[in-house]
Design a protein around this nucleic acid. Structure first.
Lengths: 149, 149
DNA sequence: CTCTTATACTTGCAATTTGCAAATAAATCG
DNA sequence: CGATTTATTTGCAAATTGCAAGTATAAGAG
């Protein structure tokens, strides 16, 4: 088998660049990390701080401060969980939702451009492959989860 | 088309975790960034500092200091380029080569474990798909290159 | 050849980001 | 109720970052 890691490494690096290129929306520049946070809050349903931190594999203290920044920027809202008063539930503000959506559209536009270099069959194959990969990775609890988790 | 970005985002995040889990070799712990640098120096043939920095999309001043750390750790060697005395050529020390190789093996072992959840056909399809993706991404100069480059 | 410009790399900051240890606050368990 | 666990926040101190400015070499113009 050829060097599979090489293939992954190059691909994820390129996708990382793509993400970095999609970090502003309507005059609002955010960092790559912040973009990931907005994405994850948007994806999960009213997640707690802990949940998002774990999903992204960041230290929770670091994450707590990142959230504080995003709240100051008026992109994220933090509401106390009525069921457990230790917990704060995160959600996007209208502005945050707008930024997240815009970034998502930019990313998807870039991806569409990438796929335009393939025919329909190749494109379908690639998308199906990534789904397969994600399933396989989720089955493998050995790795691919947070470093210390 | 479903949300393709979602698929990519999850996959690359997981692969990022995998990489983070592969950051030590024989008692030598390095950071994720340092692991990427070793990987890239190993991959390129006697690259200059500039070349590696560009490949990884890091600011060159930051990168210069990262290299200094790796030299102190005795993992990287910096030799003046005889053809152009402004340039320093990077290479791995024996120890650096050992660390890079060990990390590479760990990553590939994890990947093999992931692929063990698939049959041979699926596995071949996935690998071929990633190659396709890499080709398509390299054709697309729109994105996927360094943010400011 | 000299002067200007361009290139490769390094250093001086200053801001940001990081994570560990410890603190607070609330839930849960015995 | 007291002890333990869990969720989040703060106090640091270290590491990482990037811009601006510096050094050193190369290349091009006159």
């Amino acid at each position: 088998m050829e060097n599979v890691r090489e293939l992954f490494q190059i691909m994820t690096r390129r996708f990382g660049f793509l993400n970095k290129n999609c970090c502003s929306a309507g005059g609002c520049d955010i960092s790559l990390v912040q973009s990931h946070i907005l994405y994850e809050i948007d994806r999960q349903h009213q997640p707690s701080i802990q949940q998002v931190a774990e999903a992204l594999g960041t230290d929770i203290t670091t994450f707590s401060r990142q959230i504080q920044s995003l709240i100051k920027m008026n992109l994220v809202k933090k509401s106390p969980d009525p069921n457990d008063r230790r917990v704060y539930v995160l959600s996007l503000t209208t502005e945050g939702k707008y930024v997240a959506t815009t970034i998502d559209q930019q990313c998807n536009a870039y991806l569409a451009e990438i796929f335009s270099h393939m025919n329909d069959f190749e494109k379908e194959t690639v998308i199906r492959s990534i789904k397969l990969l994600n399933e396989a990775m989720s089955k493998s609890s050995l790795c691919c989860s947070t470093p210390i988790g």
